[in-house]
Design a protein around this nucleic acid. Structure first.
Lengths: 351, 351
DNA sequence: GCCCATAGGTACAACGTTGTACATTCCACC
DNA sequence: GGTGGAATGTACAACGTTGTACCTATGGGC
């Protein structure tokens, strides 16, 4: 028995032509039920599995898509990757993950690189390139953009309601009676450029201005990457500046978790002294102490939509359709850090 | 300008044969410097990129390896995937990630599935199949096993020093004066079967027996998956049973983080009242409150070794070599939860 | 001036699959 | 009893690349 039988071996064993075997494998109709059965049995017996390189060469499709993200060490991207892999698996696709490390050169290389003659399409979540690089997205290969760094590009784009969900987050804090709401993880300087940070800051401002409270610049902590240390440092800065605050809106969960830590260390009670809300609804927030209220940006929906758009482009159903932009729905998942619950991380308002 | 030029297009443009272009691309010597230059320039100008399906078909190698893990939502596997992708990238390989969800059928399907005619080799981290399934690993395709569920199989295997590092963890607790050391995440029933849980429990027993303290079965909390809730529940069980304990060895970091949460909720100080040590050295433990002492099992080393072994098998340098088993080195990373530091998560003994 | 080595190339087949176009059988129908 | 048309198949080319075998100048050694 050959170690790796080809379609020829199966055909010979079955006494039919290779095309007939191919037809059986692809459920083409032109095969009699008896022949079909015999071929199927031999395929199983011989352990035949089609060579995807050959199939890919012939058909121009490999059944593999790429997902480019900064790093799986960032939980947001690990969870996104999980969702994307599941969405792809549903459609019989596999996913190659490319880590760009938030490196500009690597991101550009990924977009224009040899990668593209191998995968059928790419889901790309940029971290370094921005609006000014919009032209590097111009390509004939199927590409779906994720995230907030580039808008109005030439490709399909899946993003979230950053501004309105951020506004809802702040309104949630207002709703539980907080008025001195700090913002942490804000961009280095407020700008109109589209980025998660800017868009979410805008939501913060809208909520406060609309409520009549207005913005106190001392409550806005700017700068730093969205890591836990930054959340810790932000709380330290607020405390050191002696400004009073009774709530914190962290622009993502990782920052929020750092903030929780720093607040606990300073003996401040959450939510009694300070309420905290994050953004991303990471698994982790369900089990922090206290558990973390967060904006759920609909990661599964984002993944599902992005894969669906990509598949459409790959199949060229949409060959030359205008680029589409889709925003996923969001919701606030309330947990202990804004007052929900009895201190039991096990009972939560949502899965 | 053709959208996707092939080697033929480049050859025609350069006025040479396709083989010459191929030779230039593969740095074969039989090309004059002038021709080489001209071809190179045209490759750039035309944006030619080799079709990897064709190359894969011809050469039998795709440049893609698979990594099968239960789920990227488990931080351990996300970090492992990060390390594997980096190790693979160093060697010019890409990684397809397959999630098995800890599902037996899916794991077996992954091993014997169509996957294999597409990737050059597979790194497989089982979560459901065990020693009794050792024969499903028998395959002619390059396969490297990760983890502790199966030993003595027919493939290369990368694992860690579970028992001795667990023993070292407990000895670390003994070393800071703790004697009533609880174990959480222990297997449902103690067994000889090789699994992370059993092997690590064995280390716990060895340390305590060797120290003369011996095992108090009331301190061993059995059952539950290694999730945060389980860590929370384990502490609750210990507290409810009224047994005294001054330290906790959690069989992984996720459990330990749950334990930290439950301890804090009960007003117990860590490490003053209860010291805690985990296992895995996740990024997350660096930023928990308090930061978490943990066993670092050498994930980068594991990834690096596993990819190296796989590449050897793929290149058949080792065509029929006996299966190798490699154990990575380990070390204890001491942080606040066992007494290190001043409460500042920013200053740590190691990156 | 001849032979031979060598550098620099070329032609062709092959990898395993699927699409296109055509072949054969069998039966229903007029 | 010929005609048409399903039903069931087959042969061959083609996808883009690389390995094998070969070809052709050129120049050096004698």
């Amino acid at each position: 028995m050959n170690v790796n039988p080809t379609i020829h071996d199966v055909a010979r064993a079955a006494g039919v032509s290779i095309k007939t075997v191919s037809n059986v494998l692809n459920d083409n109709p032109k095969v009699g039920p008896e022949t079909r059965l015999r071929v199927r049995r031999l395929v199983d017996e011989m352990g035949y599995r089609p060579n995807l390189s050959a199939r890919g060469l012939r058909s121009g499709k490999t059944g593999v898509i790429g997902l480019a993200v900064p790093s799986l060490r960032e939980m947001y991207f690990a969870e996104l990757a999980d969702s994307v892999i599941r969405a792809a698996a549903k459609r019989g696709l596999r996913v190659v993950i490319e880590q760009t490390n938030g490196d500009r050169e690597l991101e550009i290389a990924t977009l224009s690189g040899g990668q593209m003659r191998f995968i059928d399409g790419l889901l790309f979540s940029p971290a370094a390139i921005g609006q000014q690089d919009v032209d590097v997205l111009t390509t004939d290969d199927p590409l779906v953009l994720l995230g907030e760094r580039i808008f109005g590009g030439p490709t399909d784009h899946v993003t979230m309601h950053n501004t309105s969900s951020a506004r809802a987050a702040v309104e949630h804090l207002l709703g539980i009676g907080r008025t001195k709401i700090a913002l942490i993880g804000a961009p280095e300087q407020p700008a109109d450029e589209a980025s998660s940070a800017n868009l979410r800051e805008r939501g913060y401002r809208q909520a406060l201005e609309h409520s009549g409270i207005g913005i106190d610049p001392r409550l806005v902590v700017r700068g730093g990457s969205w890591r836990r240390e930054t959340g810790v440092a932000a709380i330290r800065r607020l405390r050191a500046s002696n400004v009073e605050f009774d709530a914190v809106f962290a622009l993502n969960d990782t920052l929020a978790l750092g903030a929780l830590r720093a607040l606990a260390q300073d003996g401040l009670r959450v939510p009694d002294d300070v309420a905290v809300i994050g953004f991303d609804n990471l698994d982790e927030g369900r089990f922090s102490l206290p558990s973390l209220t967060s904006v759920d940006p609909g990661r599964d929906e984002i993944a599902e939509t992005a894969v669906a758009l990509l598949v459409n482009r790959i199949q060229e159903k949409d060959a030359r359709a205008a680029p589409k932009t889709v925003k996923s729905g969001f919701r606030i998942v309330q947990r202990e850090s804004t007052g929900f619950g009895d201190g039991d991380g096990g009972r939560l308002p949502s899965a």
